[in-house]
């Protein structure tokens, strides 16, 4: 088992090194995130200035929520795996099946690496800049900070499980273009990346609580801000991990069905 884990770790590492090669992409992504961050800050600033009614979240918390969102943007499951997409188009996917590895675990590892590497690359400078110049506060307590780190790890697993499902859809659609147009807006809206979830109407809250997307953005960020007290970290992690387990099971069943009817493109 440890030997198997070693193999997957090696693949994550390779993916990591590969993504680190693309410095220009990292820089461009960082600049884009910063730009959108300012736009979102201005929108919510206008909203808080024009509204006298008490809001479920303070203006400072929303600003923190936005900058955390800009820092952690690459963590979201917004795309099918570009490598797998290429392999399915060209038929190179055949090589994935001649490896003595579990294909689901292999693609999950790829998805994990594809989220982890760019997130680290962008989050660290973005957080530093936000702390120094953009008014992002440190977590109110060590406990809140630790809860945020734990929930971010949970979000990474949840996101990888969702991303692996997107990748698996390629086995039916081949191009994945439809999926990558429909899914990202849904994920952004329902996770809190566009509007912080506490600002949604009360009737929507039970649904948002139930769906997995809250665990990607909203709950980790509110743990950081202290908006969710750190002693609730257990419930947050449970929500993330139960969904992760369900999505992994679903993904495995889909993959088992797909491999039986596999056609390798291009002979």
């Amino acid at each position: 088992m440890t030997a198997a884990a070693h193999a997957y770790a090696a693949i994550v590492g390779a993916r990591f090194r590969m993504l680190l090669q693309y410095r220009a992409a990292a820089l461009a992504g960082f600049a884009t995130n910063l730009f959108w961050g300012f736009i979102r800050v201005m929108i919510f600033d206008a909203f808080y200035r024009s509204s006298a009614a008490p809001q479920p979240m303070s203006r400072e918390d929303v600003m923190g929520y936005i900058w955390l969102g800009q820092a952690m943007f690459a963590l979201l499951p917004w795309n099918t795996d570009p490598d797998v997409r290429g392999m399915i188009r060209t038929g190179t996917v055949a090589y994935e099946l001649v490896r003595p590895l579990d294909l689901y675990a292999l693609w999950f590892s790829r998805g994990l690496a594809a989220r982890l590497a760019p997130t680290l690359l962008r989050a660290v400078p973005m957080l530093v800049i936000a702390w120094l110049f953009l008014g992002l506060q440190l977590p109110p307590s060590l406990a809140s900070g630790a809860a945020w780190v734990a929930a971010t790890a949970g979000a990474l697993l949840l996101s990888s499980a969702l991303a692996t499902l997107l990748t698996l859809s390629l086995l039916w659609t081949l191009s994945g273009e439809g999926v990558t147009r429909i899914v990202p807006p849904l994920v952004y809206m329902l996770s809190g990346m566009v509007i912080p979830l506490p600002l949604y109407p009360d009737w929507a809250q039970p649904l948002l609580d139930f769906l997995p997307f809250r665990g990607l953005v909203d709950t980790p960020f509110r743990l950081y801000l202290g908006h969710i007290p750190p002693e609730h970290v257990g419930a947050v992690l449970a929500h993330q991990l139960v969904w992760t387990a369900a999505l992994v099971l679903l993904g495995r069943r889909l993959l088992a069905r797909a491999t039986r009817r596999l056609v390798v493109q291009g002979g």
Binding site: A10, M18, P100
Partner: peptide, 27 residues
């Protein structure tokens, strides 16, 4: 297995790193 029209090497990595990865994959 070798499929002549496709490569099993990691496109962006030096050859030797692909070999090391395969060592880990095949244990």
């Amino acid at each position: 297995v070798v499929f002549g029209q496709r490569t099993q090497l990691w496109w962006d990595l030096p050859v030797v790193e692909s070999f090391d990865l395969l060592r880990d994959i095949y244990r």
